[in-house]
Design a protein around this nucleic acid. Sequence first.
DNA 1: ATTAATCTTGCATTAACACGCAAAACAAAA
DNA 2: TTTTGTTTTGCGTGTTAATGCAAGATTAAT
Lengths: 258, 258
Amino acid sequence: MMLQEQRHQKIESFLKQQKAVKASELAALLDISIDTVRRDLEVLEKNGIVKRVHGGAILTQKSDNVLNRLFNEREVKNLEKKQEAASIAIELIEEGQAIALNGGTTTIEIAKVLVDKFKRLTIITNDLRILSILGKNKNFNVILTGGFFNPEEYTLYGKQCEEILSNFNIDIAFLTVNGLSLEHGLTDFRMHEVGVIQTMISRTRHKVVVADSSKFETSSYINVCPLKDIDLIVTDSSLPSNTIEEYSKKNIRILSPH
Amino acid sequence: MMLQEQRHQKIESFLKQQKAVKASELAALLDISIDTVRRDLEVLEKNGIVKRVHGGAILTQKSDNVLNRLFNEREVKNLEKKQEAASIAIELIEEGQAIALNGGTTTIEIAKVLVDKFKRLTIITNDLRILSILGKNKNFNVILTGGFFNPEEYTLYGKQCEEILSNFNIDIAFLTVNGLSLEHGLTDFRMHEVGVIQTMISRTRHKVVVADSSKFETSSYINVCPLKDIDLIVTDSSLPSNTIEEYSKKNIRILSPH
DNA sequence: ATTAATCTTGCATTAACACGCAAAACAAAA
DNA sequence: TTTTGTTTTGCGTGTTAATGCAAGATTAAT
């Protein structure tokens, strides 16, 4: 016989692949009675992992965030490129400035560099992972936006989040989005993050998008803003020079380590 | 017979491979009684290595929780008493209510109980440790106040923090303070926390102070509010009955498990 | 409307548990 | 070595939690 927690984990991971499962199926698969399956599903439902239906259970939308999983996988893939872009981006910063960082794996890399390279900064963010990195430097004035908690991304969002941002005059915002293209501008699939990015843009003097080269000429579901609304794009060395030229023709500045 | 330390190491390394074990398994494997296994697991749990479950134990995955990694868990004083008070306090809550929890080790214990006992709640807090606990339940609507980050306490404070609080109508606030006495009322030494507590009180219908018995008739540097501003004090079973009577004479209600 | 499958509820059985106690193992002092 | 005190361990006690089964209720499908 297996431990409860183990079964719960197995059921959850099974559902992440199958979307739906019959109770009788699970009983056979885990070699337990159907009653125990029901009780397990009951617990998982209480924690918001699954939704129980007649005959079995389905994943809740919150747990079924396929896009998030893709996003997380990509993070590992382009880590070096993000680090490269991050190290370029921080050269725009001067000691003592007020910086904004929205949620995302690229901005996390920026935060890591900031901690070591600067003495005194004010940084506002809606990402708890960034907060945990910046918290190590006691000289930094770190401000976290409030708002609703997104446990998948460890970010905050919503009206309260944006309201706090509106209280600040930010020198530089480093923004990460999921896609950027000449045609669609900045785009993202993170429904809740879009509003945060837009608010940061509206409160900031220098709007800088930091994007590794793989993001160029891709687009996602939700429009954030046209490229003309931002001042600069910082990227890594792998971006083809003809892309830089194309963008330059449309008066979009790109900074890359060449 | 093996030394304690050796067993602990063996159990730990075994768990690192298997991620879960049954207590009976360990007893057979290490050739010790099941009682000793339980005692070993008890120690390992206190050190945060494993999580004990019915039938055995599972490895705590600190690495997969960004927030947990940040929290170097300090020794908590009077933990059992706080847990006792917490379990009483949650009986005041009804499903679906909006709860506020300010920063503190006692409210952390409340959060731990909430996750298991309730299905749907809205919870607002300024404590990141509480956020990380509540994030596990996907049905909860968790709101974090924004504001300046206090890396010592993992809490948020300041004007922005209090402004967000003012947007909400809270059903019950569970408040922890450093001292409470008939003479000075609620007091605290956490300079930044005081404003948060006061704001929570002003936005809440039922103001409940949760304090283990050691806090009674002690006071700290900063005044938070007089006792008459709160509706109820919840505490543990170690509070002397004459203290309860004294408070009752002044119309201060105390709830304790007797 | 009828049937078959699934669900809920309560209950009995079993395993796991906490607690107290005494024997055993160990360590320190005489 | 012996004595004394402390810690660790294993066992018996009653208690709690998990599981599977059964009976009646509910749902979905024909």
